[in-house]
Amino acid sequence: MAAEVSRRLVGVATLLVAAASWLGIAGAAQAKPAAQAKPAKPTAVVLSGKDLPAPLTVPAQGKPDLFAALLDQVGFLRTGGGNTGALKAADLGPKYTLAVHAGDAAQQTYDLYPLAKGGPRVHRPAQQPDKSRPGAAWFFGRLTMAETLLAAGAPLPEQNITTLHGGGIGGGERVIPDEAIGTGEDVDRLLGELRQLMLLNGAVLVSITLGLAGIALLVRRRTR
Rank of each mutant, 00 (worst) to 15 (best):
R7K: 09
V12P: 00
A18H: 03
W22G: 09
A26E: 14
K32D: 13
P33L: 12
Q36L: 15
A40N: 13
L47C: 04
L47T: 02
K50D: 15
D51H: 09
D51W: 05
P53I: 02
A54R: 12
L56Q: 04
P59C: 05
Q61V: 11
G62Q: 14
F67S: 02
Q73M: 10
Q73V: 07
G75D: 09
F76T: 08
L77R: 01
N83I: 08
T84I: 08
G85K: 09
L87G: 03
D91R: 10
G93E: 02
P94F: 04
L98D: 00
A99H: 01
H101Y: 13
A102W: 01
G103H: 06
Q108H: 13
Y110R: 01
Y113C: 03
K117M: 14
D130S: 10
D130G: 09
S132D: 05
S132E: 07
A137I: 04
G141A: 09
M145P: 00
A146P: 00
L150R: 13
A154H: 02
P155Y: 11
L156F: 03
E158I: 06
Q159V: 12
T162R: 14
L164H: 03
H165A: 15
G167H: 01
G168H: 00
G170A: 12
G171N: 03
G171E: 03
E173F: 13
R174K: 11
T183V: 12
D186P: 01
R189V: 07
R189Q: 13
R195S: 11
M198T: 10
N201W: 14
G211V: 06
L218N: 05
R220V: 02
T223I: 11
R224N: 10
